[in-house]
Simulated assay, not measured.
Amino acid sequence: MVRFGVIGTNWITESFIAAGRKVKDFELTAVYSRKLEKAEEFASKHKAVHTFTDIEQMAKSKEIDAAYIASPNALHAEQAKILMQHGVHVLCEKPLASNVAEVKDLIETAKQHDVLLMEAMKSTFLPNFQEVKKHLGKIGTVRRYVAQLCQYSSRYDAYRQGTILNAFNPELSNGATMDIGIYCLYPLAALFGKPKEIKASGTLLESGVDGQATITLTYEEMEAVVYYSKITSSTLPSEIQGEDATIMIDHIGHFEDVKIQYHDSTEKIISGPQDNDHRMFYEIEEFVNLIQSGKRESSINTHELALTVAEIMEKARIQFGLIYPADRLQ
């Protein structure tokens, strides 16, 4: 069994545990929260034996083999580093850290302490994303990648009434790019690597984070356009446009309905069965298998991929003036 501790007691941790329980050899043993009452309540609900209010005590406890981090973005780097320094494998929610310098430091720390570090971006592990990779060569030379994720945040209602919740707090390295723009960028970088040029524009809110943004990325033979928002909504699909056909993706974070559309309007469905109720299953299964096989890096969500996406996000947000407190510490 791989014994997990979880850091964070929010809805995403609930989803992680539900998916993890479907993975062979997954075991939840510990819960961390800053407040003991919250940790005990969450641990009791999910039948975890141990609770902690101190990350270092959790890391030293020998009660966990691995940790899943789902705390606010600005805390990821510090918490992950403490855990890895004590030999704990880390699966950290996206974004892995606040900036490129922190990502590089985490990768180096993982290597120094011989532990597995993986960014918890679920979409690249989904079976239907793997189908996109398999069929990419069938649409001819790729000329354009267009990904959008415009998803109105319920927390924006509170923001409009004068209450700034975590999602719109720059102190926590939040905002549209880090929270949802990354879903557009991860498949792009996984399929096509680093761009030659990046141009970005965004809408900064009074709180200091971006509410929405658009990034244009130039490659050798293609262009990519990604746009995303936490202050508007859209139901438009995303596309990978080749000279012979276009891959249509219903939702860039879910990959539930994926098809190839040819110039004569004929279509081929390439999406197949996947657990859309527990999408995190596939990344957790990979993480557990890597630990059990003694590997220290995923061949899908590689360290290089995490670093490439971090570099794109940092370059983009600097262009439209979004600087986090964490950036000033570097």
Rank of each mutant, 00 (worst) to 15 (best):
G137Q: 04
D257E: 14
R328S: 11
Y324S: 11
A158G: 01
S98H: 09
Q148S: 12
E256K: 15
C150Q: 12
G193T: 05
S265N: 12
K194N: 11
E56I: 06
A67V: 09
K24D: 13
L290M: 12
D327E: 11
L126M: 14
L322P: 01
K199Q: 12
N174W: 07
I270P: 10
G8F: 03
F52P: 03
S299M: 10
Q292K: 15
S201N: 04
P195H: 06
R3K: 15
F168K: 00
L126V: 05
R317M: 03
K60M: 12
D264Q: 04
R296S: 06
T235N: 13
Q130W: 02
S71R: 01
S229M: 02
R155N: 12
M58I: 01
G193D: 01
T235E: 10
T302N: 06
E37D: 15
G162M: 12
V225S: 09
L136I: 04
H86A: 05
I323F: 12
S299I: 02
C184A: 08
P95M: 11
V146P: 00
N128D: 03
Y186M: 13
V6S: 07
H135E: 14
K35Y: 15
K134H: 11
P273N: 14
I182W: 08
P170R: 11
H46D: 00
T214D: 01
A30R: 07
L307S: 05
Y227V: 02
V146R: 12
H89Y: 06
